[in-house]
Design a protein around this nucleic acid. Sequence first.
DNA 1: TATGAATGAGATTTCATTCAT
DNA 2: GATGAATGAAATCTCATTCAT
Lengths: 225, 225, 225, 225
Amino acid sequence: MSELETIQAYYAASLGKDGQITKTQRKILSAALALFAEKSYEEVGTREIADRAGVAEGTLFHNFTNKNGILKAIMQPIVQHILPMMLNTLDQATLDEDSQTLDMFIVSLVADRVAFVERNRASLEVILSQFFNNAEDRAAVLGMVSPEVLTQANQVMDRLKADGELVDWPNHMILQLLFSTLGGYLVEKVLYADLDVYDNQQTVHYLSDFLVNGLSPRRMPLQVD
Amino acid sequence: MSELETIQAYYAASLGKDGQITKTQRKILSAALALFAEKSYEEVGTREIADRAGVAEGTLFHNFTNKNGILKAIMQPIVQHILPMMLNTLDQATLDEDSQTLDMFIVSLVADRVAFVERNRASLEVILSQFFNNAEDRAAVLGMVSPEVLTQANQVMDRLKADGELVDWPNHMILQLLFSTLGGYLVEKVLYADLDVYDNQQTVHYLSDFLVNGLSPRRMPLQVD
Amino acid sequence: MSELETIQAYYAASLGKDGQITKTQRKILSAALALFAEKSYEEVGTREIADRAGVAEGTLFHNFTNKNGILKAIMQPIVQHILPMMLNTLDQATLDEDSQTLDMFIVSLVADRVAFVERNRASLEVILSQFFNNAEDRAAVLGMVSPEVLTQANQVMDRLKADGELVDWPNHMILQLLFSTLGGYLVEKVLYADLDVYDNQQTVHYLSDFLVNGLSPRRMPLQVD
Amino acid sequence: MSELETIQAYYAASLGKDGQITKTQRKILSAALALFAEKSYEEVGTREIADRAGVAEGTLFHNFTNKNGILKAIMQPIVQHILPMMLNTLDQATLDEDSQTLDMFIVSLVADRVAFVERNRASLEVILSQFFNNAEDRAAVLGMVSPEVLTQANQVMDRLKADGELVDWPNHMILQLLFSTLGGYLVEKVLYADLDVYDNQQTVHYLSDFLVNGLSPRRMPLQVD
DNA sequence: TATGAATGAGATTTCATTCAT
DNA sequence: GATGAATGAAATCTCATTCAT
């Protein structure tokens, strides 16, 4: 949970010489992030970004190579950290204790994700939009799932199955259901920032409980004809 | 399941005078659909559509008011039918029998959705992309959920809860989990058309079982601290 | 001498589908040629070309891929024909008669070149300018001298030397002197279109005579210390 | 031959207050000269010059009024000295002795030019390029030929003609042929710096011999029909 | 109905130049 | 004197749309 700082904190790493982000760059990124979240990347013009940031249009290109460079600077930190982070927790779970149950594993996983979404709504909205609109960006996001991490995830799932903690379905399907549940929460949160009906603790409870029950081993499998 | 025809079938209704769709219009819509699915709406030019359709650029504007009109013609039938359809099944479920269980309800719901996604991959890819990229289109899609339908859905859920068939969580959260699971499947299917690992029957089984178990009433709720 | 038509005649080959050059394209090329000759390629804007041609700026790009495409369309016919043409005459000279003298060879060579320059002053001005300013264009022009043609030229010179018609210097140097004399005439003509002091016949006489005497075998070589 | 120093030596005169050129200015001019020779004036940006010179972009404008000021500083010394120099030799020739022959006159003329080109290849490449690309710069170069010098040149030619040393053609044409031969050598040298086939002494011999024979009085004029 | 040349507003990007530090 | 971030005008090019044929 220590790694769940705000995305803004990562800007520094990808910009400026010594990890320093200048005031101007912050103004530009902030304006661009707001606009990209309001509309879409394609619908926002560089003029508009410059105006909102209170700088000249040329200044954008003095600080970023491209209009696309601005987008990258917004996405990069998330793309470079969100998935590793999500999968790092998996790692933790593996190492912690052999006797770990599905409960504990899923609860900690969900809690981290919920907190992260909560803190980075705007950036995630941009990423989400790009993910579905731009094949290249999609590839970038998905490319973060390294083979090793997948192997690790599979090991965790296999162990949980062997321990009788996890339903005996293909790992691929289990992952899909896990991502669906978290992704659905993300979408809800990102698109309806306004209506914050439930508090986070409640949300963590619902999502975790749903996943644990949905993925626990069955006594009697359901019959489909 | 009777309503699960291909989207293309709806084109006629939204075009031409008397529900007739001309050969030219079909060529254009078909080319545009393929291109919008390959890239994104913004990245596809009218020149490109005309080329692929084998007509002149001007012809596009004789048959559709706008470039956007082409997109609408592609989305409209889905947007006007998919959600009503999804909620119609809810309706069916309500009316059928009082003694219905969560099992039966969810299985039929999932089966219909899976079959529909299977048949309309390309169109759904376009809609999905637009949904996350264009606030207006998103509103259009979401606007389809009429208050009456929501009322209906709530009634079903309330009845299932009263019958001890459904976990006693807020209806809003239950719907979110339902849509997440189906949406996750949609995304997987739409983005990875290539890798068709599991057959549909299997998929219906996994999704349904996951939902039924996840949404069944608990004997002992999970503890979160 | 039959090939010395105006450059404009070659435009057709490099444009339009069936060798047809449209009215609009002619207007654009004509305006661009005039402007490129007045100023330089870099100093002429597309707006300016469009204005002078009496068309919209977009029309330029409807008819040519690039601003550079316009330049190419102006240069291409010359580059593709001028050097082959110049060297064709060499070919003629070789084939015509064995008994040919340096006199006859040079006179026909010079006469053709002079007529050609006379007719295509503006286009040649553009080419000349590009030749000295753009490495790529220079390569294009020089690339026209195919190895075969060089071989041919060398054969002619070797034969003339053997016949005692040509000074016994390296072929490379003889070619340089030939091109210098013709090139100097070209520059003079192109840069000072106004002052047409001498008529063409006179010019042909001076250049030819200078070359013949300069390149005839020596009785007594000049001493340099 | 005493005046054939390197162009760099003239920089001092046109810069700084008292003919002093600072270290920074030298760095800038050196970088700019290299770049202008590699590409063309228009294609080289101030950023690029600054980078190559190892100074800040702003420093360029502290030392030169303009980007164009840098170009001028490079060209000025040549333009202000090369032509005067070339014509000075004419002057020398005139004054030296009455009994001078065409031979001796041309040999000394050519030898000086060849040595000069040899030493100032890069600067001359820039000038050559500008000469054909920029009307203003061309005027500047040509403007250096003062009427007096022309008069002087004409006197030399007239005397040589009277002495039966020079062919009886218009002086204008004789000058053109002289410049063509030297200019052709310049172009060859400047554009193909790499392939240095012949040594200078040989080159001087060829060029001089060619000019002397080409410009000696004829016994029997060539017939053109 | 279909065509495709023409349009012109608008988008991104470059670049010489300024100026506060 | 030197710096380099900021500037904004101008340049090239794209693209949905119109309209005469």
